[in-house]
Simulated scan of single mutants.
Amino acid sequence: MVPAKDFKRRMVVEIDGAPHMIEHIQVQSPSARGAATLYKIKARNLKTKNRVEKSYRGTDTLPESSFERRPIQFLYRDADGCHFMDSADYNQFSMTIDDLKDQIPFMSENMEGVEAMVVDDEVIGIELPDTVDLAILETTPGVRGNSATGRTKPAKLATGHTVQVPEHLDEGVTVRVDTRTGEYLGRAN
């Protein structure tokens, strides 16, 4: 059992008997003495893909969902969906683009470090690494000497995702992006 005060983004908990991944948490501190802090969460049912919004007090608990994590590799994307391979037994499986719309902007072909969440031998979702390195595909040319300014410009990455990068970066540079927020973190080594 996990108390509401310990909820974290991407945690998988049982809500109404089904596994849900927490996507957003809003903490509301009480204004009155003796009132409980409220934790408002937005979560997605991993089987039906429906989103729910619930509120819990800090002492309320939810059972952590029992699922297995398996290392997988993202192979490629086509019109039918996204295709993966289990790294242990080399079995391949597919998921629809609709099921992965939040993760697709960060997925590149033959990507490793991805995990499948499996319940009863059924893949109910995937989890990407917290950061990925992607090349800048399109951006306006970098201006020499602008590395000291804090200005940014939009850059389209190899996956099609657009992110704000420092003005001095050029096309072809590989940058690190946070898959949870979609934000630029820095240059990749």
Results as ranks from 00 to 15, higher is better:
residue 23 E to Q: 14
residue 9 R to M: 08
residue 66 S to K: 14
residue 172 G to M: 06
residue 7 F to Y: 11
residue 120 D to N: 14
residue 151 R to T: 03
residue 90 Y to T: 05
residue 135 A to R: 12
residue 23 E to S: 10
residue 91 N to C: 02
residue 111 M to R: 08
residue 105 P to D: 07
residue 88 A to S: 07
residue 168 H to S: 06
residue 15 I to Q: 03
residue 52 V to S: 13
residue 3 P to V: 05
residue 94 S to M: 13
residue 59 T to A: 08
residue 140 T to Q: 12
residue 106 F to W: 05
residue 2 V to E: 04
residue 144 R to W: 05
residue 141 P to V: 02
residue 152 T to M: 14
residue 33 R to D: 13
residue 75 L to N: 02
residue 164 Q to Y: 04
residue 39 Y to R: 00
residue 144 R to D: 06
residue 42 K to M: 07
residue 45 N to R: 07
residue 85 M to K: 13
residue 168 H to Q: 14
residue 134 L to T: 01
residue 138 E to C: 01
residue 101 K to Y: 15
residue 29 S to R: 13
residue 143 V to N: 11
residue 22 I to L: 14
residue 77 R to L: 09
residue 68 E to F: 03
residue 23 E to F: 00
residue 44 R to T: 06
residue 111 M to T: 02
residue 108 S to R: 11
residue 5 K to Y: 12
residue 61 T to M: 15
residue 89 D to T: 07
residue 179 T to G: 12
residue 113 G to W: 05
residue 48 T to F: 10
residue 108 S to P: 04
residue 124 I to F: 08
residue 16 D to R: 07
residue 174 T to A: 12
residue 179 T to C: 03
residue 102 D to Y: 14
residue 31 S to M: 15
residue 55 S to Q: 15
residue 8 K to V: 09
residue 11 M to T: 00
residue 98 D to K: 13
